[in-house]
Design a protein around this nucleic acid. Structure first.
Lengths: 158, 158
DNA sequence: GTTGAAAAGTGCTGCGA
DNA sequence: TCGCAGCACTTTTCAAC
């Protein structure tokens, strides 16, 4: 063993196996995972608790089909901030726009980059005009509409 | 009652409440949801089964912190396809690139738009040069690197 | 750190209203 | 269609290895 202290700070192959299973289906029973990986249910429990305490696991969520609940439009917004305007202020205002599901501060042409989910085109127009472009410091936005989501998955750990 | 037949085809406020709770934490016990919404546990079960059968619920997943498992770089790629090259062929090849977690066919300057998660900058360079730009039909790509993910959440249903 | 079993809690299935 | 109660299963804990 090169460094004994690593055991509590880093994750091993068993942890990776557990995460890989649960990342695809968070409802998989611990007993089932235990059977598959040939360890006891208690071990899965201990490992999960460790990873939760470490902050590796941030929670779980139900995946729903947005189109089936009336959200047909997925769009990306390139946001240009005015010179001198503060990023933090704009972020706080953007957090209040519920249609924004992701926001990134980024390199390249755009100051910020957002992913938005809307009911239809008129809902998108409302969000853009009334909610986003009304925020002080936001100069203009560029809209990229997704016509089809071909891939939607998690990272592969192993 | 306006239209009795809707009950099996559409979702009501109770369904929305259930989804809202589980979208934030997929491991919430049915009994706990039942207590909160003041209905029986069996009702939650029936509603969940209905929504699963309808395809509204596509599954669940564990949310992990990519940075804590060694994935430090999140980037967006604008992909330009060559004239006449088929979209479907490129998608099939891109599906094999495990670092791509989202792929959209979209309007605007780019033909396609991808979100990639990599370990570090050299990993990103490898993915770009060896895996993505090597795919026939892909002309060039533009990379936007996320320096900070300020918002990451699900859509609000209610 | 892991195991196996016991205790507590949850999910599922009929029956009744 | 909904709610209640019983059974099976799962989670969680703990002593022992």
């Amino acid at each position: 063993m090169v460094d004994k202290s690593r055991s509590n700070l880093e994750i091993d192959n068993l942890d990776i196996e557990i995460l890989s299973i649960l990342m695809n289906d968070a409802t998989t029973a611990y007993t089932e995972i235990a059977k598959e990986l040939i360890v006891s249910g208690g071990t899965i429990h201990v490992r999960m608790k460790k990873m939760q305490d470490m902050g590796i696991i941030k929670g779980s969520n139900l995946i729903i089909d947005p189109q089936k609940v009336g959200y047909d439009i997925c769009a990306f917004l390139g946001i240009f901030l005015e010179k001198g305007s503060t990023y933090n202020e704009a972020v706080e205002k953007l957090k209040e726009v519920k249609e924004i599901v992701e926001l990134h501060y980024c390199t390249g042409a755009y100051s910020m980059f957002a992913k938005v989910i809307c009911r239809d085109t008129s809902h998108l127009r409302l969000v853009l005009n009334d909610h986003i472009q009304a925020i002080p410091g936001i100069q203009r936005t560029e809209t990229i509409i997704s016509l089809e989501e071909s891939i939607k998955r998690q990272i592969t750990l192993k």
